[in-house]
């Protein structure tokens, strides 16, 4: 069953269309990556999912219930960590964590464990916390009690590498327990490491969805090659894109189905060095965003 499902979700603020027909589906036991640059609509999408904003049109369902109308019922099983978190300056971190746990109605029996893991001082007033510490408060509250869906909006932007590892381990553990995680991020290595499936959003529209492998398959392999003789016809070979010069070598993308032909062609020019690598998410990302012109798919 789909834990989160939106179909043709549109959100307008006045005449500005923030989300233009978003289709998403997050399955049980899956870590779902939601990536896009600032202002693409990540947080707006999350706010609609959580019933903070109301969809202008389209369907938004979580656990098969309407995200707006059944918000309270849904939220009993959802844990959320906002990216830009404001807390009450005159309450302590410990108080806020307790308060959040009680509002959800959970037991919060793992509170102490996570306070220790994240190395948080719960007796300090929120006013004195740095951004990372405020995020820890939200993370402890989210992880300390049981939920079926975790919605995390750039949850690690303020964490140091040590704390980041704690976060990552717990996400993987949640996955093993069969929980669903909706993770919005622009830290691509994080998404690459944790997520089963990914959607890329740009200007309020999903421009690509699938597993990382699928996306790579769509986009191909990156080849870096240095040859003794120039390769005049490389540009015109089928399946070759984005040919660039770098330190005397050529760097380009090859569609996976064409890679055999391309290698055959290259081998005729006295190869001195050859590197093939799957596209990193960053390459993917850059391809989709460069000039805003790239369409769907890898062609």
């Amino acid at each position: 069953m789909a834990i989160v499902k939106t179909s043709n979700l549109v959100k307008k603020f006045g005449s500005f269309t923030a989300l233009n027909g978003i289709d998403l589906e997050v399955q049980a036991g899956e870590v779902y990556g939601f990536i896009g640059p600032n202002g693409a609509g990540k947080t707006t999408t999350i706010r609609v999912l959580l019933g903070i904003l109301r969809a202008t049109s389209g369907q938004v369902e979580i656990f098969g219930k309407d995200a707006w109308k059944d918000a309270v019922e849904i939220h009993k099983r959802v844990a959320y960590v906002p990216g830009d978190i404001n807390l009450w300056p005159n309450l302590t971190g410990g108080e806020v964590i307790d308060f959040f746990i009680r509002l959800r109605g959970g037991s919060g029996n793992r509170r102490e464990e996570f306070i220790a893991k994240f190395d948080l001082d719960p007796t300090k007033k929120c006013r004195t916390y740095s951004k990372g510490n405020r995020q820890k408060v939200a993370l402890v509250a989210a992880f300390a009690s049981d939920a079926d869906l975790y919605v995390l909006d750039e949850p690690t932007s303020g964490l140091d590498p040590l704390m980041y590892r704690v976060f990552q381990e717990h996400i993987l553990q949640l996955k093993q327990e069969g929980k669903s995680v909706f993770l919005s991020s622009h830290v691509l290595s994080e998404v690459e490491r944790l997520c089963d499936r990914i959607s890329i959003i740009r200007q309020g529209e999903i421009i690509e969805s699938g597993s990382l492998d699928q996306l790579r398959h769509l986009t191909g392999t990156q080849v870096e090659v240095e040859t003794a003789q120039p390769m005049p016809a490389l540009h015109s070979l089928a399946g070759v894109h984005d040919v660039r010069q770098r330190d005397g070598a050529l760097v380009f993308l090859v569609d996976n189905e064409e890679i055999g032909n391309v290698l055959k062609y290259i081998s005729g020019f006295d190869v001195k060095r050859l590197e093939c690598a799957p596209l990193t998410l960053e390459d993917l990302f850059m391809r989709y965003y460069k000039g805003g012109a790239a369409g769907g798919g890898g062609a």
Partner: peptide
């Protein structure tokens, strides 16, 4: 305004 109402809204609290 300070984005703190959402802490209540995203938990099991009716508006």
């Amino acid at each position: 305004k300070k984005n703190r109402a959402e802490h209540l809204l995203v938990r099991a609290v009716p508006r």
